[in-house]
């Protein structure tokens, strides 16, 4: 690439002599910041793991050891339902039942349905807002956008009343309904991407007689594959992490999701000496799916999230 701003050799030389030592010093500072960041980010997870693999009794006597004390898989096994409550108590656990697999299944079901529904219907709307001309288009879009300003709690109470009136308390549909058909953020996010897609292919397809749905399905969606997938994952994670709404409408055991289950588990344990290994085992297990997404998608997710900031 021919770049006119490239400094001339003499200038580069001058810069090197002038800035050499300073860059080195700055760099050391930068590495210290980075090392601290890695430590502060990862230590809580490590400590949870170390605790979950320890025995409650030994935690009391040896709180400083960096490695698990009285190493045991008992807490994980208890959380996964692999040993009986009695065996868990014998190993120092609280013996409270934490039906991990059921909560995991519930969370997966709810999060997947919301992610798929919301992404699909929001993509359809985003296409209409980005490409089609219809009366009231801008007015409707502005109202959608304005609703981003409304704090969640304002809508939570009337929505709770609605779900209550429908008799949907403690049902999957009660948890899923508000997010299933749209979210203003999703529509806004996808519209921004769709607007950036080159129109040439659509024009050509139109001349070839393609309908609007065909254009949406065969051109827009494939060309915006990455962003659509990322939005689906962000929606999935948001739903996975949601607490207040499922806590209000889905506290019953049979529909309980992981976040609600963990907070219930925590409030059930005696205040004096909670079953920390058990609680940490449950906490870590509940974060495994998010960790998996992070490991495989972290890089692309961070790029998508950066996109929301600069648009």
């Amino acid at each position: 690439m021919a770049d006119l701003a490239v400094p001339q050799p003499a200038e580069i030389e001058a810069r090197r002599t002038r800035r050499g030592p300073r860059i080195e010093r700055d760099r050391t500072g930068a590495w210290i910041v980075l090392a601290l960041l890695v430590f502060i980010t990862l230590f809580p997870f490590y400590w949870a793991l170390r605790t979950a693999l320890s025995t409650q009794r030994d935690l009391l006597s040896d709180p400083t050891n960096l490695l698990p004390v009285g190493f045991t898989w008992a807490s994980f096994k208890a959380a996964l339902g692999m040993i009986s409550a009695e065996a868990s108590v014998a190993a120092g656990g609280s013996g409270r039942v934490f039906h991990f697999w059921r909560y995991l299944g519930n969370t997966f079901l709810v999060s997947t349905l919301v992610a798929v529904g919301q992404t699909w219907f929001s993509a359809m709307a985003a296409y209409a807002f980005a490409r089609l001309h219809f009366p009231l288009r801008n007015q409707i879009f502005t109202i959608f956008l304005a609703s981003l300003m409304v704090p969640g709690i304002v809508l939570v109470i009337p929505n709770f009343v609605l779900i209550h009136d429908l008799g949907w308390i403690n049902t999957y549909q009660g948890i899923i309904a508000p997010g299933f058909l749209m979210s203003p953020f999703s529509i806004f996010f996808l519209r921004q991407f769709f607007l950036g897609i080159n129109r040439d292919m659509e024009e050509a397809a139109k001349i070839d007689g393609a309908g609007y749905f065909e254009i949406f399905w065969r051109i827009i969606l494939p060309m915006a594959q990455g962003p659509v997938l990322m939005l689906g994952i962000i929606t999935f994670i948001t739903q996975w992490n949601d607490y207040l709404w499922p806590f209000l409408v889905g506290r019953a055991e049979n529909v309980r999701v992981l976040t609600v289950a963990l907070s219930v588990f925590r409030s059930q344990t005696p205040n004096g000496s909670p079953d920390w290994p058990g609680l940490m085992a449950g906490t870590l297990l509940a974060s495994v799916p998010i960790m998996v997404i992070f490991i495989f998608m972290g890089r692309r997710l961070s790029e998508s999230i950066q996109f929301t900031g600069v648009k």
């Binding site: 219907f121 929001s122 359809m124 709307a125 296409y127 209409a128 807002f129 089609l132 001309h133 219809f134 009366p135 288009r137 409707i140 109202i143 959608f144 609703s147 409304v150 304002v154 809508l155 109470i157 009337p158 929505n159 009343v161 609605l162 309904a177 508000p178 299933f180 058909l181 749209m182 203003p184 529509i187 309908g211 609007y212 749905f213 949406f216």
Partner: peptide, 30 residues
């Protein structure tokens, strides 16, 4: 085009009306 567009935004419009717009108005009443 108008008809198609409304079909495309219909699910979102329903979701918005039921879980955002009406609750907001109902909240104001409550």
């Amino acid at each position: 085009e108008t008809l198609v567009a409304w079909l495309f935004i219909l699910p979102s419009l329903i979701g918005f009306t039921v879980f955002y717009l009406v609750p907001a108005i109902r909240g104001l009443y409550i």
